[in-house]
Amino acid sequence: MDFRFDLIWNYAPFFLSGTLLTIGLSFAGILIGTLLGLVIALGKMMRNKWLSLPFVCYIGFFRGTPLFVQILIVHFGVVPLILGQSNGIVAGIIALSLNAAAYIAEVFRSGIQSIDKGQMEAARSLGMSHAQAMRYIILPQAFKRILPPLGNEFIALLKDSSLVSAIAAPELTYWAQQMGAEYFKVWEPYLTISLIYLILTLSLSAVVNRLERRMATE
């Protein structure tokens, strides 16, 4: 097999800008997805069945339909309504965040529910409100436990961001597709971006591991 490194070099500037956009999309997705996921997790755990129903439906929808379709819906349906025109990057951030939030919500929920009931009771018996008990007692303990599964979600999100190439958001996979199309090559572009994704995911899990260690010593 003749592997053409020179062709990769031709595309290096595009892979670089694509990598930056991939990082940006993932970072925004992680940030918004985590915040939204927390809200949805708390919403789903509400005791009133009718109040929690929308959150249950949200999780069901975003976990139960293909992310690719969600991206198309957001890109061609939602973003034009807001911005007046379609925008691949904005749609990518929104779709990735909404999708990740559904998964992260379930991670949060399982983490929160794994905390001993006595912790909430002790906090409430001291006069704390439900929100205070969540904030000072339950969430700090839950967060420590959900860091590993949360790290998994972050890595999945980073790789899922490749689907945004379908709406021509010029991230890493988009440029690999363009390179493949231009030179009729498969391995040069796709192995290259796989290596870049690997470096990104390894770095991300290193960050999560560090956070885990730091929380463990607290």
Partner: peptide
């Protein structure tokens, strides 16, 4: 130049102002 995998998506992009 926005490049899509299928022509439908490219036309959709035009229709939606992108």
């Amino acid at each position: 130049v926005k490049k899509f995998k299928t022509i439908n998506l490219a036309i959709m992009e035009l229709l939606n102002g992108g």
